[in-house]
Nucleic acid binder design. Structure first.
Lengths: 158, 158
DNA sequence: GGTGAATCCTACCATTGCAGTATAATTTCT
DNA sequence: AGAAATTATACTGCAATGGTAGGATTCACC
């Protein structure tokens, strides 16, 4: 109950990794998978979703990879979540297209679910990907970090 | 994703119904099921859970039924949710007994899930069953209501 | 003491969503 | 040509969920 899907967690981790390495360079999915401990083939699917939604740019072929389409500080967690999950409702009766509830909006519980929904949404909207990346850097400072000052490295190192 | 289970919705509806009819009388599950549109046999199971947790009293046999163990204004939604779902975590890494995450607490995302968790919990803790019942009465005034001040009315006036 | 109304207990089942794997096609750089 | 990468699609195993089923037990009342 009230669980976030692993897909979304992976997508967020991928986006955070891309934020940590934000710059003109391209990051292949394999490196994201290794850095974040995500099954590669599974990650590829989620990256594809993020790409179709315009959150990440991707380049095929050798030397290809992904990068964030916008600055991490302008990407809200809610965008990533929306892309991965579509419109979410803690209870089906909030779905305007759903009318299986026999009370259909006349129910006193609906307001509760609206409250839950906005509370969650609020967290997602006030948190940016840049903030997540910052937290990550603080909590795992031993992780490799490709910040702007590390951008010029020998080719092949991405 | 982030869905509330139907079980919990039913349990809350049942508790609201019991709150609307709070008093010395006993309400059989069948009446709750009819009033709230819940499959009877399924509801019985959830009522049993609520009973074991001490939230409702129940009486077997003819003339039996259930009633709330305490005044609805003293029962928080969080209690009902906890009873129905046990400890809930929006992401498994918040579960202190779970260590499947290879970063295990060193992850920048954990704070996000903590925020989500507390936001949801906050809603559940600040809402009482009495408040839900009041909303229900407002939204569906044509529903039968057995509140203390309505106990002595001409039959069929509801 | 029998009968019917009610809770209680346990097992079962069908569906669904989720996590992950597999296979292969396509693009691109060298 | 060949390696490296994304893209597309299909499939599988598993667990949770929502609900059903059958019966056992308890109790009031005639």
């Amino acid at each position: 109950m009230l669980k976030v899907s692993q897909r979304t967690e992976y997508a967020l981790r991928a986006v955070v990794e891309l934020a940590l390495r934000y710059g003109p360079g391209r990051v292949p999915a394999r490196e994201i998978a290794e850095a974040q401990g995500i099954p590669l083939r599974f990650l590829e699917q989620q990256l594809s979703v993020l790409h179709k939604a315009g959150l990440v740019e991707s380049f095929r072929g050798a030397g290809g990879g992904c990068r964030l389409a916008r600055d991490p500080s302008t990407i809200r967690v809610s965008e990533v979540v929306d892309v991965m999950e579509g419109p979410f409702y803690p209870m089906y009766c909030l779905d305007p297209t759903d009318h299986t509830c026999f009370q259909d909006g006349r129910c006193g519980l609906q307001e509760l679910w609206v409250d839950v929904h906005s509370a969650i949404r609020d967290v997602f909207e006030r948190t940016t990907v840049a903030a997540l990346a910052l937290r990550h850097r603080r909590m795992a400072p031993d992780n490799p970090v490709w910040s702007p000052e590390d951008l010029f490295r020998p080719a092949g190192a991405n």
